[in-house]
């Protein structure tokens, strides 16, 4: 099987995630779209690992997942903190860098 199908799916998923990040207004949904983009990249990494017959891509995909988990934890804490001060989870409302 040629890897083009996997790479094509990964490219399309990445673009979909980018659209979501740009279009969606709720910060949590923006996070979901970022997760989608990270997963698309993971699919590419695993495919590349498979093409080269090495393990490095899989290990990197593993690392990306761990960093994504850390990112979600900190991001949700920030969203909660913004929600507490501004009573909104919309990315359009958080227009100030200082509270």
């Amino acid at each position: 099987m040629t890897p083009s199908y996997y790479l094509l799916l990964s490219a399309v998923l990445f673009s979909l995630g980018a659209v979501g990040v740009l279009v969606r207004r709720n910060a949590v949904v923006v996070f979901m779209c970022v997760e989608l983009m990270l997963n698309a990249v993971n699919l590419s990494l695993v495919t590349f690992a498979r093409i080269n017959g090495s393990l490095d891509g899989q290990v990197m995909a593993f690392f990306v997942m761990v960093v994504a988990a850390a990112e979600v934890v900190v991001g949700l804490a920030i969203i909660m903190s913004i929600f507490r001060t501004r009573r909104s989870a919309s990315v359009d409302d958080s227009n100030l860098l200082k509270y």
Binding site: T2, P3, S4, L8, S10, T47, R50, I51
Partner: peptide, 14 residues
């Protein structure tokens, strides 16, 4: 992405 990545690995096989 489609032109660069998919095109770049067109001849690769798994």
């Amino acid at each position: 992405l489609v032109t660069v990545v998919v095109g770049g690995f067109r001849t690769a096989s798994i």
